[in-house]
Simulated assay, not measured.
Amino acid sequence: MKHSDFWDRMTETFGAGYARSVASDHSISMLEGRTIDQALSDGENAKTVWMAVCRTWPERVPQRLVR
């Protein structure tokens, strides 16, 4: 997954303003306690990060984007 695709999905899921806040402010246990921004900066695969988002916020992520 390209980073641009990742951010498109984040924006669709959380909204344009809130997506960046989620990425910088929320630690995710599936990412070893890192934020989304930290995981991506550390070189974590965008698909892996996206799947962590899907599992952390299953009620927010549209089902068609869970892949």
Rank of each mutant, 00 (worst) to 15 (best):
residue 13 T to G: 05
residue 31 L to K: 03
residue 39 A to D: 02
residue 16 A to H: 12
residue 26 H to T: 15
residue 19 A to I: 10
residue 12 E to I: 14
residue 20 R to Q: 15
residue 15 G to F: 05
residue 67 R to N: 12
residue 10 M to I: 09
residue 67 R to C: 10
residue 15 G to A: 09
residue 2 K to H: 08
residue 23 A to P: 09
residue 18 Y to L: 15
residue 30 M to D: 14
residue 53 V to A: 00
residue 62 P to H: 02
residue 59 E to K: 11
residue 19 A to D: 11
residue 17 G to V: 11
residue 6 F to Q: 07
residue 55 R to Y: 05
residue 63 Q to L: 11
residue 62 P to A: 01
residue 17 G to S: 13
residue 9 R to P: 03
residue 65 L to H: 00
residue 67 R to W: 05
residue 13 T to P: 04
residue 23 A to R: 07
residue 52 A to E: 03
residue 30 M to K: 10
residue 37 D to A: 11
residue 3 H to G: 12
residue 1 M to Q: 03
residue 51 M to A: 07
residue 46 A to E: 14
residue 66 V to G: 01
residue 46 A to T: 14
residue 10 M to K: 09
residue 62 P to G: 01
residue 51 M to Q: 09
residue 48 T to L: 10
residue 20 R to D: 15
residue 23 A to G: 14
residue 32 E to P: 06
residue 7 W to T: 02
residue 64 R to K: 08
residue 26 H to N: 13
residue 5 D to R: 05
residue 38 Q to L: 06
residue 67 R to E: 14
residue 21 S to D: 15
residue 20 R to H: 14
residue 39 A to Y: 04
residue 19 A to R: 13
residue 52 A to Q: 02
residue 43 G to F: 01
residue 30 M to P: 04
residue 24 S to G: 12
residue 62 P to M: 03
residue 2 K to W: 03
residue 8 D to T: 07
residue 1 M to R: 00
residue 52 A to W: 00
residue 31 L to C: 07
residue 38 Q to S: 06
residue 62 P to K: 00
residue 27 S to Q: 14
residue 27 S to M: 09
residue 66 V to E: 08
residue 4 S to P: 00
residue 58 P to H: 01
residue 58 P to T: 01
residue 5 D to T: 09
residue 59 E to M: 08
residue 36 I to V: 13
residue 13 T to F: 03
residue 15 G to I: 05
residue 45 N to I: 04
residue 56 T to D: 01
residue 56 T to A: 03
residue 31 L to W: 03
residue 47 K to A: 15
residue 16 A to C: 09
residue 29 S to I: 13
residue 12 E to S: 08
residue 29 S to F: 10
residue 3 H to A: 11
residue 61 V to A: 02
residue 16 A to G: 13
residue 1 M to A: 04
residue 23 A to M: 08
residue 21 S to K: 15
residue 59 E to V: 11
residue 23 A to K: 05
residue 22 V to M: 12
residue 4 S to T: 07
residue 23 A to L: 09
residue 7 W to F: 09
residue 34 R to D: 07
residue 59 E to A: 12
residue 43 G to W: 02
residue 22 V to C: 07
residue 31 L to R: 02
residue 5 D to F: 00
residue 40 L to N: 04
residue 38 Q to N: 06
residue 16 A to L: 13
residue 3 H to F: 07
residue 12 E to Y: 08
residue 14 F to A: 07
residue 21 S to F: 13
residue 50 W to G: 02
residue 5 D to P: 01
residue 9 R to L: 09
residue 32 E to N: 14
residue 53 V to M: 01
residue 3 H to P: 09
residue 60 R to V: 01
residue 7 W to P: 03
